[in-house]
């Protein structure tokens, strides 16, 4: 497949190109087209969800920034944006700090009940969101956290920790233990060793874990829908109600901005992955 041999028959050539360009091309189109379609649609001058004749003829009257203007001036959207940026960083800090500590603990060579502990720590990722949301709603209303800022932050932090655990333990796997021993033999205490030797090496894992945790909270809608009150309305929540009730093209503008954010995050993650592999002496692939 990788390279068609010179002796390939015509049939093989036809199949090779059909497979590569028609079948795979179609599937990749299916994957990417919906996301790409909404980008031009978000510049629609009309309140339609389809391409107007003016847009198709590429005339400038067909395009406008009015949906973006609406997003940046509408108080509902701005409040939602603000809430998202209040909740996600707090949840990220909580889950990253606790998660990194636990991941370091889990990477020690002797951890009693490792499997059971791992199962519990990973469980927020396994349990369907609707069930987590239901349980948290019942439990948090018992203890008065339902409808509060901290309730949402705690819930999001819990949902984000499995990602931190997974990414940080993955970096710890390639970690050379003789480095900490070397530091200790030269008289460094455990705290210095951690910050001077261990931390710089695992930092790519920690940062990508933090990014995952951030995205988890920033994208999360089911739990916040149940746990939050009007005061904690986040961007996804606002999009969800917008899609369910009065669908407005502003949603497409928001969606486009969020696609841009995910492209930035994806590039950062890829950079971190390469850096981490280089640091650990693996050849980047």
């Amino acid at each position: 497949m990788s390279a068609l041999p010179a002796y390939a028959s015509t049939g093989q050539r036809i199949w090779h190109y059909t497979f590569r360009y028609v079948i795979c091309g179609f599937i990749l189109f299916f994957l990417i087209a919906p996301i790409l379609t909404i980008i031009p649609l978000s510049f629609n001058a009309e309140n339609f969800f389809t391409f107007t004749p003016a847009m198709l003829s590429l005339s400038p009257e067909g395009y406008s920034l009015k949906h973006y203007q609406d997003f940046f001036t509408n108080s509902d959207w701005q409040q939602a944006l603000k809430n998202s940026f209040l909740i996600a960083p707090a949840a990220t800090i909580l889950s990253t700090s606790l998660g990194t500590l636990a991941a370091i603990g889990l990477s020690q060579s002797h951890v009693p009940f490792r499997r059971a502990i791992m199962a519990i720590l990973i469980s927020p990722m396994i349990v369907p969101l609707i069930i987590s949301a239901a349980g948290m709603y019942f439990f948090y209303s018992r203890i008065g956290l339902q409808g509060t800022y901290w309730g949402v932050v705690l819930a999001h932090a819990a949902l984000g920790t499995p990602f931190v655990i997974i990414t940080v333990t993955a970096t710890m796997v390639g970690f050379d233990r003789s480095l900490t021993r070397a530091a200790a033999s030269m008289g460094a205490d455990p705290v210095t060793t951690f910050f001077k030797v261990q931390m710089p090496l695992i930092i790519p894992g920690v940062v990508s874990g933090a990014l995952f945790a951030f995205i988890t909270s920033f994208d999360e809608v089911v739990v916040v829908l149940f746990l939050g009150s009007a005061g904690q309305k986040t961007l996804p929540w606002q999009m969800f109600t917008g899609l369910r009730e009065q669908i407005s093209p502003t949603i497409l503008a928001v969606a486009t901005i969020m696609v841009a954010i995910s492209i930035v995050l994806l590039s950062v993650l890829e950079m971190l992955r390469r850096r981490s592999e280089r640091l650990r002496g693996l050849s980047p692939s």
Partner: peptide
């Protein structure tokens, strides 16, 4: 190792496992 794990373990138990 347990000392390092316990803060998160307690956190997950209270904020997630108990609700379930």
């Amino acid at each position: 190792a347990l000392l390092l794990i316990s803060p998160l373990l307690v956190f997950i138990l209270v904020s997630f496992v108990m609700p379930i």
